Computed example of a mutant assay.
Amino acid sequence: MSAAVSSVDRVEMLRPSGALRADTIELTRRLVGADDWDAIISGFDTVCQEQIFAFAQMRWPSVILEPNLFYVGNVPVGGVLIMIQRLPGGLSSIAIAKWAPMIADTQHPEADAIYSAMVAALKAEYADKRGMLVSILPHASTDPHNADYAALRGAGFKRGYALTYPDRYLVKLQLSEGELRASFDQTWRRQLNKSEKNNLRFEPAPPEQLGAFKSLYAAMSERKLFPDFSAFDTLDKLFALDPALRPALFYVYEGDTLVAGAVIFKAGKRAVYLYGATNAAALPLRAGYFLHFHIIQWLSQNTDADWYDLGGTDGFLGLHQFKKGMVGSRGVITPVPPVVNYASNPLAYALGVGALSAREMLHRLRRTLSRANRNIAQSDQPLPPLDRQFS
């Protein structure tokens, strides 16, 4: 079972150097308990589902979870939920962080220095002191240059594996309705206009109505035969979270019939499309266009999010075309960087990278075998080249 080190086990004063203004930042690192962690990071600008303790505990039950909070004085400025994966035979361990480190305030004048200082702290604790490989998957950036990836490479991390289809599709929020409609590609906007003539109704739904979404999702999965590698079985845990971190649930009805639904992570500055489901009538009704248009408006009016992350495509060209049209002229299509790895000890590096490579090969084999099943929907999107900044 997953475990966490309880409240304030270690305190470390850190004054890193070499990064942008990092020599002016003095951080305190504290390991905190699960409840404190989730409560505090709920207010972070770059909070994400993978960094929530309650989610990670269910999604990856075999790892040890260590929630690292970083403070300047008494103010939390960032954090990293580290997952400790022990290698077989106790030869070594890997310290894994997904979509991290997180920044509490992306507008902080020393946000870049805080990020670099947190990276230095992770290296000092997990690589230098405890002899582990540190493996980090940074966020996709809304800027053309991924500063987080560059900071990690500048700190000595080496490039690891990259996602097969790394592009993420991000819609710009906080636009007026007129600006939003104008931002869509012409074809996407035309489909939206048609959907609005189909007697559809959009409604936010309470957590008690999650069962209807599960039924809709199960029926869609059986109908479309998409391979599902998601964390759908964690939904109940996510909807049991406190309101700040709890996802939002939305439905679209034709009359009284539920035709489409979506689960959206809404905390922080980047809302994320987690799951969607439709029935067989949704396609001719263009219910997906209607659903996402109203989700975008709801997020702009009810959250502080600046971006709506639609996720990737898993290699399906139809999804690429649909999401690209929604991103339009004001959003961005941007790649998730490769994983980066660091170890102070060459043996720890070799063992850790070897284990990660073996796991990645198993994942790719599983996907290859799923594609060999002709009853399963097949990916048809061309493989994209690796972005030059990650080469």
Rank of each mutant, 00 (worst) to 15 (best):
R168Y: 08
G318C: 07
G79K: 06
G156V: 02
H145R: 09
E360N: 09
I96M: 15
F293E: 14
A113W: 07
R359E: 13
G18M: 05
D185I: 00
G311I: 02
M118H: 15
L192Q: 02
D143V: 07
D105P: 06
E26Y: 04
D236P: 11
Q297G: 02
V8K: 06
A282N: 00
A277K: 06
P385R: 12
R374T: 11
L235S: 01
P101D: 14
F293G: 00
I296P: 01
T334D: 03
E50P: 00
T278Y: 05
G178L: 02
S183W: 02
W298P: 06
F202S: 13
S230E: 02
A267W: 02
G325R: 14
P76E: 03
V75K: 08
L14T: 11
V272K: 13
T257N: 10
R330G: 06
K158F: 05
G211Y: 03
A111C: 04
A162K: 10
G160M: 02
T313W: 12
R374N: 14
D304T: 12
L235I: 14
L347H: 12
M220D: 01
A155S: 13
K237T: 08
S221L: 14
L175N: 05
G211W: 03
L163M: 12
A281S: 14
L319C: 00
F213E: 00
E12W: 15
P207F: 08
V134E: 13
S7C: 08
A343V: 06
H139C: 10
L31I: 10
L133G: 03
